[in-house]
Amino acid sequence: MVQNTGKASSPDTIRPVNIPELVRVEEDSRGFPVRLRSKGLQAVAIIADKWRIDDEWWRTEMVSRLYFAIVLKSGQRLVVYKDLTNGCWYRQSY
């Protein structure tokens, strides 16, 4: 019998792509982003879109996110979201 390698979590296994990146965001009283700390403090010029995702609610680690498509003062467009389960902000391509 050839022994089982038992490999489970290593670079050999499949890995997700586009993992959210933690960012520091200052929000206003409504919970909307106003400033984003990424390469210095940058103000949010426009909130172009806003949507919410609630999924996998049957699991212990449910997914509940509030996404914002924003345009910074510098003109850069990006998507950030607030994780409603832990209150942290993340940046992620959507």
């Binding site: 499949i14 890995r15 999924d55 996998e56 997914v63 992620q92």
Partner: peptide, 29 residues
């Protein structure tokens, strides 16, 4: 000695959760 080249594969392209849409798998292994 270890995987050097990876391939991006679509696994759940319809998913609302972006990190579930694609996965990185070792190429040729």
């Amino acid at each position: 000695g270890s995987p050097q080249v990876f391939r991006i594969k679509e696994v759940e392209p319809w998913s609302r959760i972006p990190e579930r849409r694609q996965a990185l798998t070792p190429s040729g292994r």
